[in-house]
Amino acid sequence: MNSSAALLVEDLSFSYGGKKALSQVNFKIQPGECTILLGPNGAGKSTLFSLITRLYDTRDGRIELCGFDIKQQTQLALAKLGVVFQQTTLDMDLTVLQNLRYHTALHGMGRKQATQRIQQELERLAMYDRRAEKVRQLNGGHRRRVEIARALLHKPSVLLLDEPTVGLDVPSRLSIVDYVHRLAVEEKLAVLWASHLIDEIYPDDHLIVLDKGQVKANGTVDEVLKVTETPTIKDAFYVLTQGEQA
């Protein structure tokens, strides 16, 4: 058990039948750290997320969330996790409030506590006034905000985001990127953000470059630039993935 890391991935490998999707993946994320997982399509990002969220079984290697093994102590580990999936997972025919209440019920929160937490999270994202609206009426950026609020309701220690800004306009994208980076610092949240957009990376972020199921680089932005001897992340990415598009 590693008590200091919020998320620990150790010697993780995974195959679909005979096709290797992840090979010997190792990294850890500390509380308060925002880690960007960068990789081209098919690099294994979604597989990694499915393994961390226990949608797939971990056969080779180990995943720990706040010291809890995802395979042995599944429920304790999952209680520490907040997730924003790539596709929207809100119920379009329910209101914002109903969607969030459903989530608090799944996490066993009482009505009073749920009401309080929902208000806090929605207010932080300036969405409290929209709580009675059906999700269908919200635009893409606002839906994403609701999903982020939902992922934080049960006060997780680790927040996973799987390309959450795909399809959003620039202002919505920037505000979400900024919000999540602030969350990591203010709430001491460990963030793992899968992305293929280089402008979402902040200078203080940690960077993991995944390609063909293997970790090609793991370190701060400066460290990655130094190792690859490149001036920009774009160049570093190009070198590490041998010219593939992010």
Binding site: Q75, L78, V83, Q86, T88, T89, D91, L106
Partner: peptide
């Protein structure tokens, strides 16, 4: 397919 099943499956219950 749409993903909302994932929300159910990642909640901390058996």
């Amino acid at each position: 397919e749409m993903g909302s099943m994932r929300i159910l499956m990642v909640c901390p219950l058996p």
